Simulated scan of single mutants.
Amino acid sequence: MKLGIIGSGNVVSEFLSFIDEIKSIELVAIYGRKHSIDKLHQLQNKNNIKKVYTEFDQLLLDEEIDTLYVALPNNLHFEFAKKGLLAGKNVILEKPFVQTMEEFMDLQKISKDKHLHLYEAISNQYSPNFNKIAQWTNQIGDVRIVSLNYSQLSSRYAKFQTGKILPAFDFKSGGGALQDLNVYNIHLLTGLFGRPQEIHYSYNFVKNVDTSGILTLEYPNFISNAIAGKDVFSIENGMNFIEGDKGYISIDKPTNDISTISLHTENSIDILKLSGQHRMFYEFETFANKIASNDWDFMNKMLGHSKLVLEVLTTVKRQMKSDHPDK
């Protein structure tokens, strides 16, 4: 994979902290706005990136690049992904994938027509522990309650309180607790259990955005709560439980990082901890492998999962719009 990185924010810095461990990925270029040129050159020099672009159209003309990693504010995902696909590049989009179902269908059609790969970067779906959790659900009897909590005081919250609204707290830019943090909980729940029957969101609404909230997803035989907050001081370790009538599963970190999990039954405790790898390592290792092997079945499976998550998000955003029709 010959990669062009789109963006220079915190998630890009995280990505660059481990990506040299995946030898099949070559960092060809990084793109950002002109006012970020100094930061772009710093990232280039520190991480041996060949080229820097401040004009996206110029990057798209670079024939050395075959894949784009789009890590921009949420409302820009669709625009940059579509341009990338139309230019003949595979696209990896940071979560949340896109903002509307129409955008999803548009990107999916272009990727199919042009035989290009299209993925959502969502760490918990690619962790080896995801499959282990799925296996363990068969050992805890009938699942009755699932409770997930990914709350983390935002580094941008202080500015938000003073009235400086950055994209992370701008609902029109795809910001808010639902799409920034709770999306990880939604991915985990739907990945394990599929489509919920009922969806309801209770949330704190401040300056026209959900700063925290509790999302209830009801399944035929159990209820789940997905909690997320950007305005709360929370412990670093997660408090995540899948509880059945014969045992329970715990996830000991927030749901963006499921590296430490444990199975508790009447007579035993089984603890599984992944060794050392950054939480994003496994998804990008998978993307590189699947793009190299042109595994279209796998891509379509993961697009189907992303579509289901978007259906949940769309339902919740429709409820929020109904709650606040003047916003």
Results as ranks from 00 to 15, higher is better:
residue 49 I to V: 02
residue 51 K to V: 04
residue 52 V to K: 04
residue 55 E to S: 15
residue 57 D to K: 09
residue 58 Q to E: 06
residue 58 Q to H: 02
residue 64 E to N: 03
residue 69 Y to K: 14
residue 72 L to A: 01
residue 73 P to A: 07
residue 73 P to Y: 13
residue 76 L to E: 15
residue 76 L to F: 15
residue 78 F to T: 05
residue 79 E to D: 11
residue 80 F to N: 05
residue 81 A to M: 07
residue 81 A to D: 06
residue 81 A to F: 05
residue 85 L to R: 14
residue 86 L to C: 09
residue 86 L to N: 10
residue 87 A to E: 01
residue 89 K to T: 11
residue 90 N to W: 08
residue 91 V to C: 07
residue 92 I to L: 07
residue 92 I to V: 14
residue 94 E to R: 06
residue 95 K to S: 14
residue 102 E to L: 05
residue 103 E to M: 12
residue 104 F to L: 12
residue 104 F to W: 05
residue 107 L to E: 03
residue 110 I to N: 10
residue 114 K to Y: 15
residue 115 H to T: 06
residue 120 E to W: 03
residue 122 I to N: 11
residue 123 S to I: 02
residue 128 P to M: 06
residue 128 P to G: 10
residue 132 K to Q: 13
residue 137 T to D: 06
residue 138 N to G: 00
residue 138 N to M: 03
residue 139 Q to K: 11
residue 139 Q to W: 07
residue 144 R to F: 06
residue 144 R to M: 13
residue 144 R to N: 15
residue 147 S to K: 10
residue 147 S to Y: 11
residue 147 S to F: 13
residue 152 Q to R: 05
residue 153 L to S: 00
residue 154 S to T: 05
residue 158 A to L: 07
residue 162 T to F: 00
residue 164 K to P: 02
residue 164 K to F: 11
residue 164 K to L: 09
residue 165 I to C: 01
residue 165 I to W: 00
residue 171 F to E: 00
residue 173 S to H: 14
residue 174 G to C: 08
residue 176 G to N: 08
residue 178 L to K: 03
residue 179 Q to C: 12
residue 179 Q to T: 14
residue 182 N to W: 03
